[in-house]
Design a protein around this nucleic acid. Structure first.
Length: 119
DNA sequence: ACATTGACTAATT
DNA sequence: TAATTAGCCAATG
């Protein structure tokens, strides 16, 4: 059976599980991820989601299940990927055909945004 | 306890 | 459209 998780681990797990479900060529915003998670855990905000993804490679590596985390599908409210890995994220998004703005520097959220209940 | 920090956001200019 | 500002929530030291 599943091991007991601390509150922090529970939150991290919820975020990672949701992000893993984002289909290729689609995207979610930090705020949207935070809302969905908060529906069940009743805590956290956009900045917490950012903190989880920022630490998914080190601090939370033990919960990140290897490296299969499509972190580039989570962008800010303006559609921009994290500044630290901007080009890498944009390359990945372009590669899977995610709708981008005309200048190709951000996701066209009007077309690409994904909600968990729409498969 | 308190201050700082951040892969955020919405409103304002 | 881009820069600034104030609010936000929880982790960290």
């Amino acid at each position: 059976m599943a091991p007991e998780l601390s509150d922090a681990e529970e939150y991290v797990t919820a975020v990672l599980d949701l992000v893993r479900r984002i289909p290729p060529a689609r995207a979610m915003t930090y705020g949207l991820v935070a809302e969905i998670v908060a529906e069940t855990l009743h805590r956290g905000g956009p900045r917490q989601v950012g903190a989880v993804l920022a630490g998914s490679g080190d601090r939370y590596a033990h919960l990140a299940s290897d490296g299969d985390l499509p972190w580039w599908r989570v962008v800010n409210a303006a559609g921009s990927p994290p500044a630290h890995h901007l080009t890498e994220a944009l390359d990945a998004l372009r590669a899977e055909g995610c709708p981008l703005s005309r200048d190709g520097r951000r996701v066209d959220l009007r077309r690409a945004v994904w909600f968990p209940d729409q498969t």
